[in-house]
Simulated scan of single mutants.
Amino acid sequence: MKKLVSIVVPAYNVETEIEDCIRSVQQQTYPEWELLVVNDGSKDSTAAIVEKVAAEDSRIHLFNQQNAGVSSARNTGIREASGIYIAFLDGDDMWEPEFLEEMIAAKEKYHVPMVYCGYSHLYTGGIRRKFTYPYVNGHILHDVINKKTQIHIGAILVDKSVIDQHNLSFTEGCLVAQDQEFVKKLVSLVAVRAVPRELMIYRIRTGSAIRAKWDWKKHIHGVYAFRRSAKFILLQSLIHYDKQQLARDLAVREAFNLYKLLWRMIKNGYEQEALELMNDEENVRSLEKLEVDRVKFIHRLKCSAVKSRNKFLWWLLRYV
């Protein structure tokens, strides 16, 4: 008997893409699924389009909620999910027809709680960019932390029991990187297997979050998300890792992420705000963990400039 897969789709103002997303699920060669579309207070016709398609397919379910963000929408989907397996797909993204079949085959062949695959970027005009990261298997937390591989939230399949057992959820109110926080927590708990094919299509659309104007108040949430995931990870038993080495790697990566944020703030004219962040006690401790000798030469120069707190130098750097 085939096992049911719950597919959680958060949707906000995606009237031009949501039907393509749903059709990509309907075209799956693996038929045992339920599609949980959570309309996060869309102001366009997203909900009406989903209702129309759902009327033709009893496996599709629409949940409407007031706008509360993508994390809230995904959490709603998790609560409503009844499948043995769970997957996530944003309302403007798509899967290749073999996604579920190949992911489940790999999962059951290797007896792992989680599998992931590659993905391609789809740009306006139909241009595609291929997945360039290596596929790694097993206990891969170090690879994920150090960005030796990349796991997209829309390119995973995981036992729902893992999420339930550890009470995992997406951090509500987090504006960026809430998906990577969730992924890091997952891979800290289980062994994974890669399906070395690009079975997910990540659409880069005009007006999407990835193309929006850079805002430090938004992107600092990425630092906070990493910090939360690190704290969660270090509370686990971690029998497959050297906990001391892992703590070091997490601290170094957090410091590097913070340095990059500060550098970009300075480049965009937020010198005073950068100084205030650098004076924060937790950020001071974090930056002390940055191992400059482990980064490229250009980053050593940039890091030295950031730490100098020299506003004239910072002003010059805006034109570098």
Rank of each mutant, 00 (worst) to 15 (best):
K3R: 13
S208W: 02
Y270T: 00
H121K: 12
G269T: 04
S229P: 08
S42I: 04
S169Q: 14
S24Y: 10
L246D: 05
V50R: 13
L313A: 07
A68N: 12
V38S: 00
T149L: 01
H240D: 13
G222Q: 10
S6M: 09
W315N: 11
E288K: 13
V38L: 09
N167G: 05
L287A: 07
F88R: 10
G154R: 11
G154Y: 10
V320A: 09
L141P: 08
I127Q: 12
M103H: 08
I239S: 14
F297W: 10
D215P: 02
I239Q: 15
L4I: 11
K289P: 02
A212C: 01
Y123R: 10
S72N: 09
H152S: 14
L157G: 03
P97S: 01
Y30W: 08
M103G: 00
F88E: 06
P97A: 03
R227W: 12
Y319H: 15
E96D: 04
L157H: 03
G173W: 05
R79I: 00
E98G: 01
S161E: 15
A191S: 15
R129K: 14
D280K: 11
N283F: 09
P10E: 06
V284I: 14
A251I: 00
D249G: 05
A105H: 12
G69K: 07
S208Y: 03
G222S: 12
L36S: 05
C174D: 06
E80F: 06
P97W: 04
V320D: 05
E102H: 11
A81G: 12
E108F: 12
Y123M: 12
L290C: 09
R211N: 15
E281N: 08
L157E: 10
H166N: 15
V252I: 14
F170K: 04
V25I: 12
L186F: 03
S237A: 08
I266A: 10
N167T: 04
V306H: 00
V162G: 05
S208G: 15
M114L: 15
H61I: 13
A11V: 04
I266K: 04
L62H: 09
M103L: 15
K260D: 08
L290K: 01
E15T: 03
E101H: 12
E56L: 14
M1N: 12
